[in-house]
């Protein structure tokens, strides 16, 4: 097993290099300008905009820019943002805790809802509970977060006046500070968590249904094992493969943030940094965030593969 993991990690290095090349080319070819805000300002003639582009190397050939980036990266230099002229790693580290907190909690919430609801619904297919769960799930993924976010704001902030909808880093410490941090995270976590939970519930239910119909489950039941025991010991373990896949797909987002939700609630996370950097064509920042994201994608794919082997020992890796 450890040999397998080691080999996969060795493969990961060239594959990440390959990904970085593609990412860089896409970003370099994507049109736009970090200084587009200057365009209509009569105080700033277009030559200034062009001179800035040239100074930051935006007019160099792509392969030169890539070589420059990769050598700097190898030395641990992430470059600096064109827009704020701040080092990229500083920017990312400033944003990371918030993203981990908000997006992490919402993923946790999604799992806490999806797994029990999905499992329970699958044990009683087409019952009232199952029907309700399905209907809510359908509503959940028919409505995009840009919509539910505003709905939540209108209900909980404007009408009821219970929760603030501008997420800000409150200075201070102690219990009141902690409570405030929780209070302002409730809405974004709910919006994002419920959206994720909706689709995940459907996947869990379907995976459970696939297994529940198999012969060995019927056998286990025939042996007189209790329902709960059958479900947990025999069905769930085998149904976990698609669920593990889904979680592995979602985990990198805990770093990458949630662009729309962060935007709506003004959460200073990686997602809002990414979107504003993309819109401003701030290539060094976009490149750094997406590259770290790519590393996480590859890593969690590997973890998922290892977990498959543990869940179903017949899956062999060589």
């Amino acid at each position: 097993m450890s040999q397998y993991i080691l080999r996969r990690l060795m493969i990961a290095i060239p594959s990440l290099l390959g990904i970085s090349v593609v990412l860089f080319v896409v970003l370099a070819l994507a049109p736009g300008d970090p200084f587009s805000e200057l365009a209509t300002n009569p105080n700033v003639p277009p030559e200034v905009q062009a001179a800035l582009r040239a100074k930051f190397g935006l007019d160099d050939p792509i392969y030169l820019r890539y070589l420059h980036w990769i050598t700097a990266m190898a030395h641990g230099d992430w470059g600096f943002s064109f827009v704020s002229r701040v080092d990229v790693d500083t920017l990312i580290l400033q944003r990371l805790p918030t993203t981990l907190y908000v997006v992490g909690s919402s993923q946790l919430l999604a799992l806490l809802i999806a797994i029990p609801v999905g499992v329970y619904a699958a044990t009683r297919p087409y019952s009232l509970f199952d029907q309700l769960a399905n209907t809510f799930a359908f509503i959940g993924f028919s409505l995009p977060t840009f919509f539910t976010g505003i709905l939540f704001i209108l209900v909980f902030s404007v009408k009821l006046d219970w929760l603030p909808f501008v997420y800000t880093s409150v200075p201070g410490s102690g219990i009141p500070w902690l409570l405030e941090m929780i209070r302002q995270a409730i809405m974004p976590v709910m919006v994002l968590g419920l959206f994720q939970a909706a689709s995940m519930t459907r996947f869990v239910r379907s995976a459970m249904l696939d297994v529940i119909r198999l012969d060995y489950v019927t056998t286990a039941r025939a042996k007189g094992l209790g329902q709960a025991k059958v479900i947990v010991k025999h069905v769930m373990r085998n149904a976990m493969i698609p669920v593990v896949t889904l979680i592995a797909l979602q985990m990198p987002a805990v770093f990458g943030g949630a662009i729309v939700t962060e935007q709506i609630f003004r959460i200073p996370g990686i997602g809002s940094l990414l979107i504003s950097s993309i819109l401003a064509n701030d290539t060094p920042v976009v490149m750094a965030v997406t590259f770290v994201f790519a590393c996480l994608v590859v890593l969690f794919n590997l973890i998922a593969d290892v977990l498959y082997g543990w869940l179903d020992p017949r899956i062999s890796f060589r």
Partner: peptide, 15 residues
């Protein structure tokens, strides 16, 4: 056209 492209000084971009 997206604002960051529309107001860009990118010589190669026709938009």
């Amino acid at each position: 056209v997206v604002a960051s492209v529309f107001f860009s000084s990118d010589v190669a971009n026709p938009d």
